[in-house]
Design a protein around this nucleic acid. Structure first.
Lengths: 204, 204
DNA sequence: GTCTATACACCGATAGAC
DNA sequence: GTCTATCGGTGTATAGAC
């Protein structure tokens, strides 16, 4: 339509403000906890009143939704980056992927709660926000198939195993490395179970 | 002191009312979700106003705390009951314990959230309420030692494995059996890893 | 002692003036 | 687009009726 440069400027400005809101929300979530985030404080951090945020997001859950999408997009980007330098052996490849996901989850408690736990009572991610999460899962799955691990139950078992280690680490030893130190051993256990060859070092 | 029978009646009545409050709280938590519990609705269900509940509990979190203690006490009772009829072989024993804990967790979503997840934002269980949880963990650990699995890291790995399967089941297939069906396989994988003998059937 | 009525501070969300 | 004002909701505190 007419006046497209002006509308571009407006769209840019709007997008910048949205990003600013989300950045403030992340800071608050990391400082006080994901559930303690309030619209009034988000507004205060960027020089706005709470109701003004409704010009940029439909609701508080819409902010959570955008944060959810950001978190999983970041994870997806980390996986894409990882694919350039994956090790050659299947077992090492599984370990590398597990470590990448583990470290990404443990690095930011608020982010991990939003991505992988149901810590916000009424929040359900939208299908659009969920898309990068599906992307991550599909990437991991395709790597599994390439490694010869193609059974669905084995994949489910791997998901539960890595997720369980992350949750145990966050819940029982936050900031420590008690379960982080078990990750390689756990993947070895899994690799033995599904019959992956190489470096069959005993349980230690 | 004088008048002890009267004071007994009062204590009884008070204890009954506390139990009634907790029962109402469980019903609401199961119906609407653990986080959706409100004092006004708890009061309404037992014919009271919300502020009256403060005669029986110091705060809403104190109600969660009592529920937390009830949940883990029930789990502890289930384990004590289980010990009477544990199978003879170490591997079967590990499976039986894992299945008991898994089923107890999956049977009641609200209860599992309260016991094992940080779904209530400000709530931290008191040390008294945490005692039965410690009891369950100690019982499992002593069984492990009796089975010859005495390494701390192996125990941690088992905890993460079972917990991960429970969380995956609840999060990705609530009401179904996709991860429940993997529990025996997972314990076999673990038993193989720690070198437990018997029924070394391959990964199926 | 038990319970209620009332009030407070906070929340997310909405309506309407500017 | 941003504001003020306000609504209905929450947990919680307290004064006082019975």
């Amino acid at each position: 339509m007419l006046g497209s440069p002006i509308r571009d400027r407006q769209a840019e400005r709007r997008s910048d403000t949205r990003a600013e809101i989300l950045e403030a929300a992340w800071v608050i979530a990391r400082e006080k906890g994901l559930a303690e985030l309030t619209l009034r404080e988000v507004g205060a951090r960027i020089g706005m009143r709470a109701p003004s945020l409704y010009s940029y997001f439909d609701s508080k859950n819409a902010i959570y939704d955008a944060m959810f999408a950001q978190a999983w997009s970041g994870c997806l980007a980390a996986f894409d980056d990882l694919e350039k330098r994956l090790p050659r052996t299947p077992r090492a490849e599984l370990k590398k992927m597990a470590r990448a996901f583990f470290d990404y989850a443990v690095a930011d408690l608020a982010r991990h709660q939003l991505m992988n736990q149901r810590t916000i009572s009424g929040f359900v991610p939208s299908t659009e926000a969920y898309a990068p999460a599906v992307g991550v899962l599909e990437r991991v799955r395709s790597h599994f198939v390439r490694c010869g691990v193609d059974r669905a139950d084995h994949f489910d078992l791997y998901i539960a195993l890595v997720g369980g280690l992350i949750d145990a680490q966050q819940a029982n030893d936050p900031g420590g490395s008690r379960w982080s130190a078990l990750l390689d051993q756990a993947i070895d256990m899994f690799a033995d179970h599904v019959g992956l060859p190489e470096s069959r070092r005993k349980s230690t």
